[in-house]
Simulated scan of single mutants.
Amino acid sequence: MRAAVEGNAWLVLFVAYGILAALVLPRLFEGALDVTPLRGQLRERYGSETARILAAAPLRFTAQNLTTAIYMAGTLGMALAAHAVVRMPRGSEALVRTGATLALVHGITGFASVALRDTPVDTALGFFRNGAYAQLDHRWEGFVRMNGIWPEASSFAAFGVGWFVFNFECWLRRVEPHLTGPAALVLGLALLASTSTTAYVGLALSGGVARPRRDHPGPHRPRPTGLAFAGRDRRRHRRQRAAGARPAPCRRDAQTARAHDS
């Protein structure tokens, strides 16, 4: 646990400040300034869409402050747990497979939010859209924007870009390519269809980094990582077992043996 905390020291500080701010600052500055209300913004209450968007209310402590504190604490807990799992044996493999699964689910729910809008499936997806901060709808004269289980399209894209880059880079390095390749493809197509500027900027930056490495594979070729070595060793062991030969020790095991011998 200590290693996980030290590895996420900046996140620990950020979460501690965020929880403190969420619980203390609304009471400290209650009524001193106006903020945009995040719940109960019914159009009928304000008379017009413009009035609803520009509406403000005095700052006060609400249940949303507790929700924010709980979400931040949950984020920190997941980061610490992920750090501990990756350091375990075969932890890297679990990380890659989890990332591929997340990417596939994210992309599929994105397509479902458009193709199955106003159906029972959309109602089920709406159960997860518990953020009521989006002031604008995601449709315009019959055109529907992709948002998956997220409250708005930009949040859907921001979450998806990171996992697309992860899976695409793993696929380039031949790390679980049978999983990371399809995951990157499905999520990439979803981001292209999302009509989100966040998605297009993220894809452009990712493509701008990958293009030089494709055109100049020498100096720009991705340096193999521990994940790549693990995937390479597993494929070599499968071939050796299929041929009836005794598998050779993994790269890391061989390095450890040499270190002990010295």
Rank of each mutant, 00 (worst) to 15 (best):
M1I: 10
A3P: 02
E6C: 09
N8L: 10
W10H: 08
W10C: 05
L20C: 09
L20K: 07
V24K: 05
P26N: 08
R27Y: 05
L28H: 06
G40I: 07
R45E: 15
A51I: 03
L54C: 00
F61R: 02
T62Y: 04
T62P: 03
T62V: 04
A63W: 07
Q64V: 01
I70P: 02
T75G: 15
A79Q: 14
A81H: 12
H83W: 12
T98P: 00
T98G: 14
G99E: 12
A103E: 11
L104P: 05
L104Q: 08
V105K: 03
I108Q: 05
T109D: 02
T109M: 05
F111Q: 10
V114D: 05
L116H: 04
L116Y: 09
R117Q: 05
T119M: 03
V121Y: 02
V121M: 04
D122G: 01
D122K: 04
F128D: 04
R129M: 03
N130M: 10
Y133C: 02
Y133M: 08
D137C: 00
E152Q: 05
A153T: 13
S154A: 13
S154K: 01
F156I: 10
A158I: 13
G160Y: 11
F168T: 11
W171K: 06
R173I: 01
E176P: 00
E176R: 06
T180F: 07
T180A: 12
P182M: 10
A183P: 09
S196V: 10
Y200V: 13
L203V: 11
G208E: 09
G208W: 12
R213C: 12
D215M: 09
H216Q: 13
P219R: 15
H220S: 10
H220V: 05
H220W: 15
R221W: 07
R221D: 15
R221L: 13
A228K: 02
F229C: 00
A230R: 02
G231Y: 01
G231H: 00
G231L: 01
R232M: 01
R235K: 08
R236S: 14
R241H: 10
A243R: 15
P247A: 07
R251K: 08
R252C: 01
Q255W: 14
A257F: 04
A257R: 15
A259S: 11
D261H: 11
